[in-house]
Design a protein around this nucleic acid. Sequence first.
DNA 1: TACTATTGTCTCGTGATGTGACAATAGGAA
DNA 2: TTCCTATTGTCACATCACGAGACAATAGTA
Lengths: 233, 233
Amino acid sequence: MPNETEYLKHIAYDSVIFGFSGTSLKILIMEYHGTGIFALPGGFVRIDEPIDAAVVRGLRERTGLDDIYLEQCHTFGGLERSQPEAMRQILEANDLDPQDYLWMLERFISVSYYALINYEEVNPTPDALSDSIEWYDVDNLPPLAFMHEEIVEKALLTLRENLEKKLVSSKLLPRQFTMKELQHVYESILGTEIRRTTFQRKMLSLGVLERHEKRYSGKAHKAPYLYSFIERE
Amino acid sequence: MPNETEYLKHIAYDSVIFGFSGTSLKILIMEYHGTGIFALPGGFVRIDEPIDAAVVRGLRERTGLDDIYLEQCHTFGGLERSQPEAMRQILEANDLDPQDYLWMLERFISVSYYALINYEEVNPTPDALSDSIEWYDVDNLPPLAFMHEEIVEKALLTLRENLEKKLVSSKLLPRQFTMKELQHVYESILGTEIRRTTFQRKMLSLGVLERHEKRYSGKAHKAPYLYSFIERE
DNA sequence: TACTATTGTCTCGTGATGTGACAATAGGAA
DNA sequence: TTCCTATTGTCACATCACGAGACAATAGTA
């Protein structure tokens, strides 16, 4: 368990881990042991560790992935987000004496990040304090502690802004995908419907897609081509 | 002087305060008493103070303005930005014993903000530790301590992204202004030249400008109209 | 009264985007 | 086999935003 002398007091990070499956955008939510408390996966920063490195460390522990696409979102520095009761509850449910972890009950500043991962490659693993870590549709989340809804909201906004600018979609899809799958990524992030023909024309004109063989789904209609993003260094 | 028990350890903020005058974008830079060290105005966060409030407090002290347009930029959480020697130098130049302010020599995480103010309304005032606080052209800054160049760079990028989205220009100009002045704001933020006719057409088509009487400059040419942004609540 | 620098506006061409049409398929049904 | 349906790839056309240049109107000067 985190120790007082090992971590920076008053500073935490929270990560909004996005994945995409079917037609919907999902994020990973943890549930703490026997408390019914849901929250974003987060953690503390070691005394001599860059914040970014702390986040990468946390992501590796929870997803098994190295080399995750990560972007900082916002830093929440208000007072209203310290919830000592919830924290106490979590500690007690784990048979830890809150008296030994007083620093965890104090005010925290939260630096939030979002991460983009390929849904298929991940096997979420809970940490010491949590029962489970599971995918939830972004528009069907359980109630979150520590005002984490606000963080999710901000992450979604930032993701939307970066959608075209940073080719976000390439990080959320498997290497090869159909145009329709790509369109679903855009639609689920933007929360709007997109006209098929316009979308296809625009994507192709960007010059970042490579076309491969067709994918036969077994359905009674024309088979779509598979595409991949052109690698460039 | 800041006291150890009063402020959160390891957490600071830095503000990039933008102003616009003539044809160039400027920011406020402080120089510490007799050290030749230049840096962005920044400060610490009180134990029970939201970070945003700490920044507003600092801005009020330095500019005399309440109600400043403020936006968070990025949080710098790396290790490379602690410069205990510079900090020691600043303390000693102020006849303070570094032994009494050891917490100020430790690692800091910096939450950066940018502020937009009307250049004409401000009378910059130095704080306890600084000799001067003065306007510098963004593309002609003195060398800055604490890797503050990086913060300025990031603030400029963010400002550019928000230029059209958040009508940034309205915060940098006096209530009434000419189309050419507005164009200079855009050009100095984007760092590029803009075609006059295209710019004028676009601004007018946005429907956010109100036209007033002409301004006679005394120069031998047609007088431009004055405009203001339409207030809306 | 002529001249100059600047401003407000228009036109034209180009490229991106909205919108609908249409032919080409993959498999199922008759 | 032949027809049928859902989906896909592509095109044509209208519309709109924007780059680029042209031009008349104007404030003060010579």
